[in-house]
Design a binder for these strands. Structure first.
Lengths: 258, 258
DNA sequence: GGATAAACTTCCGCCTCATGGAAGTATTCG
DNA sequence: CGAATACTTCCATGAGGCGGAAGTTTATCC
């Protein structure tokens, strides 16, 4: 009989404006949700079906969504086109791409480029090999700072105050090896600063580790490049050398200041 | 005294809903407009300043826009993240990337990957070399089908009816060498179909030409890879061989059907 | 550095346009 | 082929967007 307990459902106090709702619907398309039916969207957002229908129709007309023959919604090319104007693409990505690919060729491993975004590592680009560690996250996704190589590099480059702020929040712990103790992390980050590179050992997923180095512009760290490899192939010395070389090339492509 | 001739201004009959206006504002961020001030947005959209202000504020709160210390708006990371879920990225892009980069390394030229979108060639990815032809368009931009190598490939793969529909619209003519005569284009496209590759010679911009080949999945053309080079270096035979090799690799990475 | 201009932000009463339940239609599944 | 599910359309109501104008901050100029 399921009852009608919808009373205390989810709506705290926010009626939500049309535009906010539109953004909320678009936000449903995250990693793993590349195609959604109308009802799925209604469930995910908690909005009435007719409301979702109206909004999705508008979004489709604007090219922000598109609807395939399977009646499912996908992100539209218009939205994608607009997104290409994001600062993330400005120079970093374009100038880094060939270098990342060469890195990928040289190492045969998963190569990632990430920046700091909203207290997480935002994966700007990612090259995944068939022969390497299985996919954890696709480009455009976020992962914690303290469990990934690129994340540690980005975090270590922040001010002490920012680091403390990060540590003050509860830290996710995806594996048993994840470092979540504040003191241990502080030591780890200090080491990253000294050495100029970060290492993770099964801190994000069992069986794999990573190495990452910063990309600097005008003395500040704007991004990080890293590789994710099976633990057995975690040859830190070689990888750091290769990564540093790549970072240097990317930095050169960025220009001095912009 | 300026009068109040605002009556017949610009608003045909569309008041525009909040969501539509939001999309319109986001749409202002196209090639060459990566950062806009509030007044610029108001001018571009023709919307009142206060309205723009309200909408941009909402968009910023949602992460769809961000505002730098220079008070200018840019596309936000949230929007970018969502865009990564677009079908464009599904497999094509990820699996093509390393190959494109290798192409870039081998040829030292501008390498482009494009799909058909709304009657134009949508550039999914683009690697631009310092040593090669200057930038015409960035990734995420649209160019005509009949003046670009990748465009011709995509157009030639369409049904005859679709081609005729394309030819029935007025064709832009960026250079004197652009082929805009319908009959000449039909012949050109027939040739593309036979040979399996397309050539342009100064049809998009003076001094440069291009070669492109299709990327097939399940017998249909889903994309095109091409290179843009200075006319002096337009060694068709060599480029076609290299491109075909690359296309084969990309196709292999796509999987059979999905 | 002070004055003027431009760009931006806030405010509020009017009135349009979004709202969402319900009824109707298409699609899928057994 | 019928039942269940997914989607689309409709409409009276009132919540929320509207934009001109006044106020504040930032940029420009001499």
């Amino acid at each position: 009989m399921r009852a009608t307990m919808r009373v205390t459902e989810e709506r705290p106090a926010t009626p939500g404006t049309l535009l906010e709702r539109g953004m909320e619907i678009l936000g449903c398309f995250d990693a793993g949700h590349t195609a959604l039916t109308l009802t799925q969207i209604a469930q995910l957002t908690g909005l009435p079906l007719s409301t979702c229908h109206r909004i999705t129709t508008t979004l489709c007309n604007g090219g922000f969504l598109s609807r395939g023959s399977d009646r499912r919604f996908r992100v539209g090319t218009r939205l994608w086109t607009i997104a290409q104007q994001a600062p993330l693409n400005d120079r970093l990505r374009e100038s880094a791409l060939p270098t990342l690919a060469r890195l990928y060729e040289e190492t045969g491993e998963n190569v990632t480029l990430a920046v700091l975004d909203r207290g997480q590592a935002l994966y700007v680009d990612r090259l995944v090999g068939e022969r390497s560690v299985p996919t954890v996250i696709r480009g455009g996704g976020h992962l914690p700072l303290h469990t990934t190589g690129v994340g540690k590099v980005l975090l270590a480059a922040q001010t002490d105050a920012a680091i403390e702020a990060y540590l003050s929040h509860p830290l996710p712990r995806p594996t048993l090896r994840s470092i979540t103790d504040p003191d241990a992390l502080r030591r780890d980050l200090a080491e990253v600063r000294e050495r100029g590179y970060a290492i993770t050992r099964q801190e994000m997923s069992a069986g794999s580790g990573s190495v990452a180095v910063p990309i600097l512009r005008g003395g500040t760290c704007v991004a990080a490049v890293g590789v994710v490899v099976h633990m057995a192939r975690l040859d830190v010395g070689r990888l750091v050398a290769t990564l540093n070389q790549a970072a240097r090339v990317i930095e050169a492509g960025l220009g001095d200041e912009g």
